[in-house]
């Protein structure tokens, strides 16, 4: 679905990413780990087409565009603070021409604990609620590729689990996910493949079973917490 070919990025003279190659297949979850400043956000932004790479190219398959495109959630929630929860959703869906999805809004709002707050302006919501709303937008978007940067930030433990389940359910429906996080437990729980970004280089663990092994977990812990 998405292929990164020899991606490099420099900020000034400082290299952030060095020759990254990565392929994300249909219905696959790739989780990207790395310590703060490792370049996770930059790699996600390049993959999404928000930031141009210094070198290399991003190839997105035509079927991604045809089937509903990409949903990108960065550190910001992409919400209009003066609009209500429902108004934000309606505008978002109108931009994606997603009228078919409208029926599922009520149910999904209920699942994300936002139904009671549907007529409140977004500025009146807590950070966790805003994050849930932003994640909910991704789920109802119908996108075939979701790119989520620290999706669990601001969520309490109960909501993290529910969001994890939702994301795994999306994968079952054929959606691909590219997730950057520093939360090892949550990331490993959901990942089909794990990628570790250190000093601008990407190490990819191809075998899904490796992810659950304590040795790999330990390495990630050491790298991420360094």
């Amino acid at each position: 679905m998405l292929t990164l070919i020899d991606i490099s990025k420099n900020y000034g003279l400082r290299p952030v990413l060095r020759g990254i190659n990565l392929k994300i297949d249909k219905a696959e979850i790739v989780v990207l780990f790395g310590h703060n400043g490792a370049g996770k956000t930059t790699l996600l932004k390049i993959s999404a087409g928000i930031t141009p790479p210094t070198r290399g190219r991003v190839v997105v398959e035509d079927q991604v565009i045809k089937q509903g495109g990409i949903y990108y959630l960065g550190h910001k929630n992409s919400l209009y603070s003066e609009l209500t929860v429902m108004e934000n959703i309606r505008f978002f869906l109108s931009m994606r021409n997603g009228t078919a999805m409208v029926n599922s809004i009520e149910e999904t709002l209920e699942e994300f604990g936002l139904w009671q707050r549907r007529n409140d302006p977004v500025k009146a919501l807590s950070q966790g609620m805003k994050r849930r709303l932003a994640l909910m937008k991704g789920i109802i978007s119908g996108a075939s590729l979701l790119m989520l940067d620290e999706p669990f930030s601001g969520l309490d433990l109960g909501w993290k689990d529910r969001v994890l389940n939702k994301l795994m359910a999306l994968r079952e429906k054929g959606t691909s996910l590219f997730i950057a996080t520093h939360l090892i437990n949550e990331g490993c729980q959901i990942a089909d493949r794990v990628a570790l970004l250190e000093r601008g280089n990407l190490t990819l663990f191809h075998d899904k079973t490796e992810v659950n092994e304590s040795l790999i977990q330990e390495r990630l812990r050491n790298e991420v917490c360094r």
Partner: peptide, 9 residues
């Protein structure tokens, strides 16, 4: 809040 990304994507 990066709201323009609603349209960008």
């Amino acid at each position: 809040d990066g709201a323009y990304l609603n349209v960008f994507f």
